[in-house]
Structure formats: structure tokens, C-alpha cells
Amino acid sequence: MLDWIRSLPLIPAIAFLLVVIYLRAGATYALGRFATQLAHRSRLRRFLESAAVASAQDKLARWGAPLVALSFLTVGFQTAVNAAAGVVRMPLRRYLPALAVGGFLWAVIYATAGLAAFSLWWRLLVANPLAAVLVVLAIFGAAMVIRGGRRARARLRSPATPLAGAADRQGTGSSSVRAD
């Protein structure tokens, strides 16, 4: 199928991939909504009606559209985000525009550089499976190093939380005992 898509001119290839991603992501969203409906009829109902879930639904309804759109620039994460948007019942008026934007970006990238990169990796896999696995592991490792570096920088920038013992020594902690 990859050769068939690559044989298409760019615009028809993007159009075909748009149909694919809209159907796939839309179905994932719908499955998330359906799973929530089933869960509401089960023991999970109390959890799904909790304040925490209501808060998550509110945040995703307000801020989820950019997350949905940007998730299409990742591999694997997009499925989780689309399912989560369905599970928390993100309103369609916010979900569909995000799907349109993110899906379009995905189709353009996949029809151009993404498809070429995957085709190159597939040829490597056929020729030398070990090298193909090492390439995937190297990319994954690089992503983890970048993520770890970002987390470390974020920890250095965040203010340190005082230790409970320090608060007690100052007499502001709840466990300080005074001898009168």
C-alpha cells in the first residue's frame, strides 16, 4: 500500500491520507465515548461522576483542542489523546476542528517526509532487521534523553519545597510541641 500512496501525486496522496486519519481518529474518539457510556452502566459510574472526572472534562473541553491537534505530530500518543477526548466526552464543536487541523498536518507530513522516512526504515528492516531495531531504539533513547533533560531543567527552575522538619523547627508546623 505504501508504494500505491507514493505513486500518487502529492495532493491526491494528502487527500487519501486525510480520509484515513479522519476515519481512524474519529472512530477512536467514538469508541472512547461508547466505552464511557458502557462504564456509566457499571460499577465505574461513581468514579465517572466524581468531581475529579468532571474537572478533567472541563479542562479538556476548554484546552483539549490544541492537545488533540498537536497529538497528530506524535506516534502512538495521538490514539491515546483521541480516545481520552472521547472518554471525557470532549464536545464535538471543539474536537472536530482540532481533528481537522491535526489530521491535515499529519497527512501532509506523512505524504511527504514521513512516508519517505518510513519507506527507508522498511527497506533497512528487510535488509538488516537488527540495524532497523537499533535505529528505533536510538530514536527512542534520544527522545528519553531529551525528555529527561527537560524534566531536570524544570526541576532546577521550580522552587524547592520546604521540608516538614524545617517548618517544625521554626514552630510553624502542626507537630511542634511546646513545653510550658
Rank of each mutant, 00 (worst) to 15 (best):
177 V>I: 09
83 A>V: 12
95 Y>N: 01
48 L>W: 03
139 I>L: 11
135 V>S: 12
150 R>N: 12
98 A>K: 04
52 A>C: 04
143 A>W: 10
44 L>A: 09
84 A>Y: 11
47 F>K: 03
41 R>S: 06
178 R>S: 10
104 F>R: 00
141 G>H: 03
107 A>T: 10
136 V>R: 02
58 D>M: 13
139 I>Q: 03
84 A>E: 02
165 G>H: 01
57 Q>L: 01
46 R>F: 04
100 A>P: 03
57 Q>C: 11
135 V>E: 06
139 I>G: 03
80 A>Q: 13
7 S>Y: 12
38 L>A: 07
178 R>M: 04
108 V>L: 02
113 A>S: 06
47 F>E: 08
26 G>H: 08
161 T>W: 13
85 A>C: 03
11 I>E: 08
112 T>S: 04
54 A>I: 12
15 A>W: 10
46 R>K: 09
27 A>D: 00
128 N>G: 05
93 R>C: 06
79 T>G: 14
102 G>C: 06
9 P>T: 07
66 P>Y: 00
88 V>M: 08
128 N>M: 10
32 G>T: 00
47 F>D: 05
158 S>I: 05
48 L>M: 04
42 S>L: 03
138 A>D: 01
134 L>Y: 13
113 A>T: 09
42 S>Q: 02
123 R>M: 13
19 V>G: 00
20 V>I: 12
58 D>C: 07
132 A>L: 15
107 A>H: 08
44 L>W: 09
46 R>I: 10
179 A>P: 08
170 Q>S: 10
60 L>E: 04
12 P>N: 10
158 S>F: 01
20 V>T: 05
20 V>D: 10
93 R>S: 14
110 Y>T: 14
116 A>T: 11
65 A>H: 13
150 R>P: 09
8 L>T: 13
139 I>R: 00
120 L>G: 14
174 S>Y: 12
54 A>C: 09
164 A>E: 10
143 A>T: 09
166 A>D: 11
111 A>D: 04
172 T>F: 04
9 P>A: 01
67 L>T: 15
40 H>G: 06
161 T>F: 13
109 I>C: 05
50 S>M: 00
9 P>W: 08
180 D>R: 15
123 R>L: 15
113 A>M: 07
104 F>C: 02
76 G>P: 08
154 A>I: 07
17 L>W: 11
79 T>H: 13
99 L>N: 14
138 A>S: 00
80 A>D: 13
154 A>H: 06
12 P>D: 07
121 W>A: 09
104 F>H: 00
20 V>P: 03
91 P>F: 06
8 L>Y: 14
166 A>H: 00
24 R>V: 13
51 A>M: 01
29 Y>Q: 03
138 A>W: 00
25 A>M: 01
79 T>K: 05
93 R>M: 06
1 M>K: 06
13 A>I: 04
62 R>K: 15
43 R>N: 05
31 L>Y: 08
169 R>W: 07
124 L>M: 09
154 A>M: 10
115 L>P: 06
163 L>V: 04
66 P>W: 00
160 A>L: 01
16 F>W: 13
45 R>Q: 05
149 G>M: 01
107 A>C: 09
164 A>H: 07
38 L>P: 00
